[in-house]
């Protein structure tokens, strides 16, 4: 059947006039427009190709990046896929205990800020970074504080317990240290420990004391090994740091002069004293804080050998002058 429209005569519209014009027939301005159009379209095409290439590169990078999420695996529970990178002594077990992740926790459900706060709650940790390593590993990068001194503090139940003091004055409960190493650390004396939250406030002056200790450890290790107590009792007023050795000698260091000079003087004095004839009174105190004039105090009299034997050796703990202020 023929539709009415098929039987109708076709009328031609102006739209059938071909609008194609060869460049030769164009005006100079028309040719200029044509060239600019070609340039624009070429530039647009090049931009598209460049964009596609960049997108391909980025997608390739994302696919090969272990930190990028990849669907199903990111939704799996983390389980024991927790790694720790540290510059100190903490181990993975400590990290797992500290994070205390729920069994069904996945990488995508973790609140990294909150976990980081948990890690930093330990005074031993100076800085911490937690990273989701897709497909399913949680990585922790930790930098630890190094202990400089030990300090005795009263626990909540009233018993005394040893804590560690770092160079920046942070007092913390050390985890994972070798006990033999800890036994070589002198005790801190003459400071007030102030409670702050569940721990203690930072101790002022520790930077200077740590400088002295590190200098002594590396420049005069035999002398340092006899140091048992470091007192900061006169640090604030006089800038003095008092050190008591295992054999009862008190050495006062000043902070106005380089510690190296003071250690050199100490070494000279002690060598001189060691060469003294027998029966000479023992040196009781050396004050290095006054510069080249070094007052040296001697013991009043030589005790009888029997009495000397009865005298206590270096104390396991010094007589503490630490006051705990709640």
């Amino acid at each position: 059947m023929i539709k009415p429209s098929e039987a109708l005569p076709a009328t031609r519209s102006w739209r059938e006039i071909p609008q194609h014009v060869t460049p030769r027939a164009m005006s100079p301005e028309g040719r200029r427009r044509r060239w600019m159009e070609i340039v624009r379209w070429t530039a647009a095409g090049a931009a598209l190709v460049a964009g596609a290439w960049a997108a391909w590169q980025v997608s390739g990078t994302v696919r090969s990046d272990p930190r990028s999420p990849s669907g199903e695996s990111a939704a799996e529970p983390i389980g024991d896929r927790i790694t720790l990178a540290t510059d100190g002594v903490l181990d993975r077990g400590w990290l797992v205990r500290t994070l205390a992740l729920p069994k069904k926790a996945t990488l995508l459900t973790l609140d990294l800020a909150e976990l980081k706060a948990r890690v930093l709650a330990s005074g031993q940790v100076a800085t911490a970074d937690l990273i989701r390593n897709f497909p399913g590993t949680l990585s922790a990068h930790v930098s630890e504080r190094a202990p400089v001194l030990r300090v005795m503090a009263a626990a909540a139940d009233g018993s005394a317990r040893p804590l560690l003091v770092a160079r920046d004055g942070v007092v913390y409960d050390g985890v994972g240290y070798d006990p033999a190493m800890l036994r070589t650390l002198p005790w801190l004396d003459g400071v007030k420990l102030l409670r702050e939250g569940s721990g203690f406030a930072r101790i002022d002056g520790m930077e200077t004391a740590a400088d002295l200790l590190s200098r002594a450890k590396f420049e005069a290790e035999p002398r340092y090994s006899t140091w048992r107590v470091v007192s900061l009792a006169r640090f604030k007023e006089d800038g003095d740091i008092a050190v008591r050795t295992a054999d009862g000698l008190t050495i006062i260091f000043g902070t106005r002069e380089d510690f190296f000079r003071q250690l050199a003087r100490l070494d000279l004095l002690l060598d001189t004293a060691a060469k003294a004839p027998a029966g000479q009174p023992a040196v009781r105190e050396i004050n290095l804080s006054l510069g080249s004039q070094v007052p040296v105090a001697f013991a009043a009299a030589q005790a009888e050998p029997s009495v000397r034997a009865a005298a206590p050796a270096a104390p396991a703990f010094p007589q503490l002058h630490i006051k705990i202020t709640p």
Binding site: T11, R12, W14, I17, Q19, H20, A25, M26, G30
Partner: peptide
């Protein structure tokens, strides 16, 4: 009401515009 014109005259006008490399969208 159908308006019609001579093909050559219409083409001439259109080609003036096409000479500037512009397209005639409506007449």
């Amino acid at each position: 009401w159908t308006v019609h014109g001579q093909e050559q005259r219409l083409a001439d006008t259109i080609h003036v515009i096409r000479g500037c490399n512009l397209e005639v969208g409506e007449l």
